[in-house]
Structures are given as structure tokens and as C-alpha cells.
Simulated assay, not measured.
Amino acid sequence: MTADTDFCRLGRAVVETEMAALDALQSRIDGTFADACRSLLACSGRVVVLGMGKSGHIGGKLAATLASTGTPAFFVHPGEASHGDLGMITSGDCIIALSNSGETEEINRLLPAIKRRGLDLIAITGNARSTLAGAATIHLDAGVDAEACPLGLAPTASTTAALAMGDALAIALLDARGFTAEDFAHSHPGGRLGRRLLLRIEDLMHTGEAIPVVLPETTMADALLEMTRKGLGMTAVVDSQRQVLGIFTDGDLRRALDEGVDVHATAIDTVMTANPRCVEVSQLAAEALAVMERHSINGLLVNDAAGCLSGALNMHDLLRAGVV
């Protein structure tokens, strides 16, 4: 039976080999790499990524990374390309082909068609003297001295190097395009980042009749009825112009009861929290969350640009929307 120490020794050896491959890759981020970036920036169509086997998996990831960071891209399986999918590649597109050997038959079979269309071909290989490297407009060397596999067979260090080279391209392009976190969120509207960067308070807040609101002369008893009906654990206290005077929450209720206040005879403006923290409708929902967390509160009143009450929001609304 293999001992734990042997598992760990082999695992560390793999990591060390792949680290060495990445270290060697740094010196190849040079003028040729910059040429590849300029070619991709100048592309008027889409970036089409090709790769077979493990290189295909890396290619699929590269295409996804490019697409989500501002460079329209998609992956085409080379085997399918020669049976019709080549029609997905159009004038103005740019090709990135990944092959460690540079002699992948399914890719090299497509080279004449790519050349006929006059498309830029960026090859990422581990063999600068290969057929693919020679046919490429730009060749990026992702070669490694050794695979991490002790048999020297399974692609390991070579796929790590290709992955890093692809990521380097994607991030260099992201920066050159001035791609922002908000741009990223627009590409990921279903993700948590997208929700945090795109959702605004006005998208989540309670409005109209759903807002718990009372006038300052309202008794505590009636204010409690309003809180119960609206179910937000609070009520706004406003004047006749809907300017916010204060807020009354479950916490204010507990403090008032501890002091023996008569709920039927006491006006709400004598027990409310005056000048409460409010947010504006145009702010991000994430900003409302930050206010709640910073001040350890569970609800906020929402004002419009004129400072009048426009809505109400609580922590449950943010939880349901996935902002938290």
C-alpha cells in the first residue's frame, strides 16, 4: 500500500515541475506576445479557438475567459470543423490554435482553409519547428522541459503552460480595452458579482402601499399595526411632505416597553429614532448592504433625489436577491 509520505512526495514533485514550467514561460512574454495581443485587438470579428484532447479543454477555457473579459470568442472542435463547423469561421475572425506537438492532424488539416480566408493564426505550441508553428502568423512558445507525469505521457506541465499563456493574453487584452468590473458584471448577470454590481436599490425596495409609514402624531399602537401589516420590522415616520423625520423599529419598541411607555397614549415621534440613516433609490444594492453591516441594522428607508420617502428595504430583500 502506498504510504501517505509517498503520495505527498509525488504531489509536491508535480507542483514543482509545473512551477518550473511557468517560471520558464515568463521569459517568453516578449515582443511576439505583444504582437499577438495587437492582432487580437485589431480583430474585427470573433476569436475562434481550436484544440484537440487536453489542449481542447484548455482552448475551451481560453475562449470562455476571452468572452467574459471583453473579447468575443468561442471554441470550435477541430474534428467537427472539417465536417461543417468550419462555416462558423467568417471573414474578419482571428484563430488561436493550441497543440503541444504542433502536429495535431485535425488542426493541421484546417490550415489551408484558414490561409485561404486570410485570417490571422496565432499558434500556442511546445514545438517551434512544428507544422502548426510554421504556418502561424504568430507563434507563442509554451514548450516545457518535462511533463509532471512520471511516465512523460499525460499532458500536465504543458497544459499548465498553455493555460497560463492563454490567461496572459486574455488579461492583457482586458487591460488594453479598459474593461471594468461593471463590464464584467454585464457578462455575468446571473453570478453574485453581477448582482452586486448591477442591482440597484430601486430594483429591490418596497414601494407604494407596501411601505410602512406613519405621521409623527400617530400612537405607538397604530404604528405597531402598520409595522405588522407591512412585515418589515419597522415603519417610517414622515411629515405631510413625506420628508423622513425618523424610523421606529423592533429595537425601539423593546426599549420603549422596558421604560413602561403606554403604547395607546404615546405619540410615535417621542419614541422613534430621529434622523435615521437613509439611502437613495439610485444607489447600488451592495451599498445598502454595506450601510447595514457597518451600523449593525437590518432595515433602511429609501429617499428619492428630493429627499422624500420613496421606499423601504431590509436585509431579507438583499438575501433573496443574492446580494449578500
Rank of each mutant, 00 (worst) to 15 (best):
T2R: 09
A3W: 03
C8A: 14
R9L: 02
R9M: 07
A13T: 00
E16L: 02
M19D: 08
M19C: 12
D23N: 03
A24Y: 02
L25K: 02
Q26M: 12
I29G: 07
D30A: 09
D30E: 14
D35N: 09
S39D: 14
L40D: 01
A42G: 02
S44K: 05
V48E: 09
V48T: 14
V49L: 04
G51M: 07
M52N: 13
G53F: 06
G56Y: 05
G56C: 12
T65C: 04
L66D: 00
T71L: 00
T71G: 06
A73I: 07
A73M: 06
F75A: 12
E80F: 08
E80T: 07
H83E: 11
G84I: 05
T90L: 13
D93W: 01
C94I: 06
C94M: 03
A97K: 01
L98C: 10
S99I: 00
E103M: 06
T104W: 08
E105Q: 13
R116F: 14
L119C: 05
L121D: 12
N127G: 15
S130Y: 15
A135Q: 11
A136W: 09
I138P: 08
D141I: 12
A142R: 12
D145W: 14
A146E: 13
C149D: 07
G152C: 07
L153E: 06
S158M: 02
T159S: 13
L163E: 09
A164V: 08
A172R: 03
L174F: 06
L174R: 05
G178S: 08
G178D: 04
F179A: 05
T180Q: 06
E182T: 14
E182D: 13
D183P: 12
S187P: 09
H188Y: 09
P189L: 12
R192D: 04
L193G: 01
G194I: 11
L199N: 03
L199F: 11
M205N: 03
T207W: 11
I211T: 03
I211N: 00
V213K: 08
V214P: 03
T219H: 14
A221F: 15
M227C: 09
R229E: 15
G233A: 08
G233M: 09
T235D: 10
A236R: 07
V237Y: 07
S240K: 10
S240V: 11
D252Y: 02
D258G: 08
H264G: 10
M272G: 05
M272T: 06
M272H: 05
A274Q: 09
N275A: 10
C278I: 03
V279P: 01
V281E: 12
Q283P: 02
L284T: 00
L284H: 05
E287S: 04
E287T: 00
A290G: 00
M292D: 01
E293K: 06
R294S: 06
H295V: 01
S296Q: 14
N298F: 08
V302P: 00
N303R: 13
G311P: 04
H316N: 04
R320H: 13
A321I: 07
G322Q: 00
V323A: 00
V324G: 01
V324E: 10
